[in-house]
Amino acid sequence: MNCLKIVSVCLLFIFVSSFLGSKDGLFNIPQNWPKPIYNFSKNPLTKEKIELGRALFYDPILSQNNTISCSGCHSQFTAFTHVDHALSHGINDRIGTRNAPVLINLAWNKRFMWDGAINHLDVQALAPISHSDEMGSNISEVVTKLQHSKIYPPLFFKAFGDSLITGENTLKCISQFMLTLVSANSKYDSVKRNESSFTKQEENGYKIFNKNCTSCHIEPLFTNQKFENNGLPLDLELKDFGRMKVTQNPNDSLKFKVPTLRNIEFSYPYMHDGRFKNLNSVLDHYGRGIVKSKTLALQLEQPIVLSANEKVDLISFLLTLSDKKFLFNPEFGYPKNLLLSLPKD
């Protein structure tokens, strides 16, 4: 009977650890956060795979002419979005149609892209790699280039015990690096952990937030992961109807993914097409810019009218979502040791 107990305890441990993602702190669920959506048991994190994914993330080898890397439109110090660009630009300076989203807490994401066209983190990278305005390549070309490079076959060998590179392994490594991009060390988080406290202004801003914003931007991820029409007037040039293009359902017209507000201080410009340069413009939109239509979010049927003081307080709360430890964590930065020290061909 004792043996059975030991076996079941071991099984339980394996079961639990597969949910946690890793046994050695490569991925930790922040206190009081929900379980991640990503199934780590199908792609268990290892140090080698994360490092390889990080090299791929920062290496322009993923683009057709070796000029654009993922980090080109997703730089760390802006919470992995495209600094100061309303619409992101890719290969040969071609300009896309949307604002690059932040890459934060992706393990909890249900769907990817502003319209949710991508259903899993592993296959997300295929979109920018293949898009003619982004990296202009394809995964098969990328794998061939990696296989013929000097640095990658040994790195894949270290990570997978096989230097034969596949699309599956390439994509899973990129996922591994992106999964580690967890931002949970803002002032807001430390307040929640009772390690510090809000100023009076931040506290008031938090109350305004809870009254007006939290139904879509739910804590602790600050998004409900849903697609909503937040009343932006249609850009007649881009004619982007968002989620409807994916579902072909008119009820999804003008709906876009509710973005996280974490690190919002650094992720400007805002909205799917980057139309607002600063947070004041965003709050102005919710106060007097909402365009009514059939698919408008129910929460926005009444505009969010705030006084000048309330706006200042709300913004001071939003700034407590900045996570400097995340934005400047050297583990997420350019992997100098991998990409600079080794010979390239």
Binding site: N39, K42, N43, A117, I118, N119, H120, L121, D122, V123, L126, A127, I129, S130, H131, N138, I139, S140, V143, T166, G167, E168, N169, L171, K172, S175, V246
Partner: peptide, 18 residues
């Protein structure tokens, strides 16, 4: 997510835009 063998996206049978 990403699969291997005949399901590997390098086989050109996985959509990239969705």
């Amino acid at each position: 997510g990403a699969m291997g063998g005949d399901l590997d996206p390098t086989k050109g049978m996985y959509w990239t835009w969705q």
